[in-house]
């Protein structure tokens, strides 16, 4: 467990919490522009334990992104992305991307002043793509401008499209772990303890991790409420710049550097592409004695590359949050 950080198992647990609390939220959320923010406020302030359900939904989603990113780094830094796990690595990366989209669409569903800028800026980025930009934009927002159709599309993607994808790819991902021979472990002769972990023991350890995570989640839900802002006022055409959701702060910082197509589309998607192609930058297989170890020498180039990318994303995120909101104009 100290080797895997238990991140994969925790991700499953968090995904279950997100899913369950999400179902509860669905009973109260109204996906129309004039009612969306109000229904979120109603859930938060007037429904008994509604605040707890919403905060748990929010915090488990944020922790899921963190844990998934951590899981990805573990996989890269232990060389677990290499054959026979190359396909599963790609499934994992796509799961992270879908989780980010789920998080962003959930954030947009608040439909309040706090998300207005990110919604406008994020969807406008799509427009900058030469040739297909406008078409993609109107497909995404459901018309020539953001409105009721945008909200219902984000709602449908959040509840059905992306959630179905996450379930299908998630189950496939877990199935592939088993098919690929379990987690990437050192060869038997190099293990300190060659005995397999007993099923009962594994259950206990997983159970313990879930208990602690549950306690942290409820604690966070009590102490740090999920963000809320006033409803988007009628006829508001321009959105005041606010901080993007934390997982896209690095893109917001990139956007301040210049051309939105280059810095808002090419660079982030380039980063994603590089990450996805990681298994192809390294020798097909690690040496026998490098298997199941942290920082195997054979994967050095990939480790440095991913460390640099992660470092850059962290630095950009910190810069964006330190810089705060830029005064307009």
């Amino acid at each position: 467990m100290s080797y895997t950080l238990a991140a994969g198992g925790l991700a499953v647990f968090l995904a279950l919490v997100v899913g369950f609390t999400g179902i509860l939220v669905t009973f109260f959320y109204i996906p129309t522009p004039d009612q969306a923010a109000k229904s979120v406020q109603e859930l938060t302030f007037l429904v008994p334990f509604g605040w707890l359900v919403r905060n748990l939904h929010y915090w488990s989603a944020q922790l899921l992104i963190l844990v998934a990113a951590l899981h990805l780094l573990r996989v890269v830094f232990t060389g677990a992305y290499l054959p026979p796990r190359r396909l599963n690595y790609l499934l994992g990366v796509s799961l992270l991307v879908i989780c980010l989209l789920l998080d962003f669409s959930g954030y947009v569903l608040r439909w309040d002043e706090g998300v207005h800028w990110a919604l406008v800026a994020g969807t406008n980025l799509v427009r900058t793509i030469p040739g297909i930009g406008e078409g993609l934009y109107s497909t995404l927002v459901g018309g020539s401008q953001i409105g009721a159709t945008t909200l219902i599309r984000f709602y449908a993607w959040h509840l059905f499209g992306l959630t179905l994808l996450v379930i299908i790819i998630g189950v496939w991902h877990i199935f592939r772990v088993r098919r690929d021979g379990g987690i990437a472990v050192p060869p038997p002769e190099r293990r300190d303890n060659t005995a397999r972990i007993p099923r009962k023991e594994l259950r206990r350890k997983e159970g313990l991790a879930m208990l602690w995570t549950g306690a942290v989640l409820v604690g966070l839900a009590i102490l740090v409420p999920a963000p809320l802002a006033p409803a988007i006022s009628e006829g508001a055409v321009s959105a005041k710049e606010t901080l993007a959701p934390w997982f896209f702060l690095w893109v917001q910082q990139l956007l301040r550097m210049g051309d939105p197509f280059v810095f808002g589309v090419i660079v982030p998607f380039g980063t994603l592409l590089v990450l996805a192609l990681v298994p192809y930058f390294t020798p097909q297989r690690l040496k026998h004695n490098e298997l199941g170890r942290w920082f195997p020498r054979g994967g050095r180039n990939v480790q440095i590359l991913v460390a640099c990318l992660s470092g850059a994303i962290i630095v950009l995120t910190l810069l964006a949050s330190l810089q705060g909101i830029q005064p307009a104009g």
Binding site: P48, L52, R204, V218, G219
Partner: peptide, 21 residues
């Protein structure tokens, strides 16, 4: 012991949530 401690902590925070409500 770990199990017991984690369960107590979880119960405590759930109790805290009920108190908050």
């Amino acid at each position: 012991g770990h199990y017991f401690l984690a369960s107590v902590v979880l119960l405590l925070v759930v109790g805290l949530a009920a108190w908050q409500q």
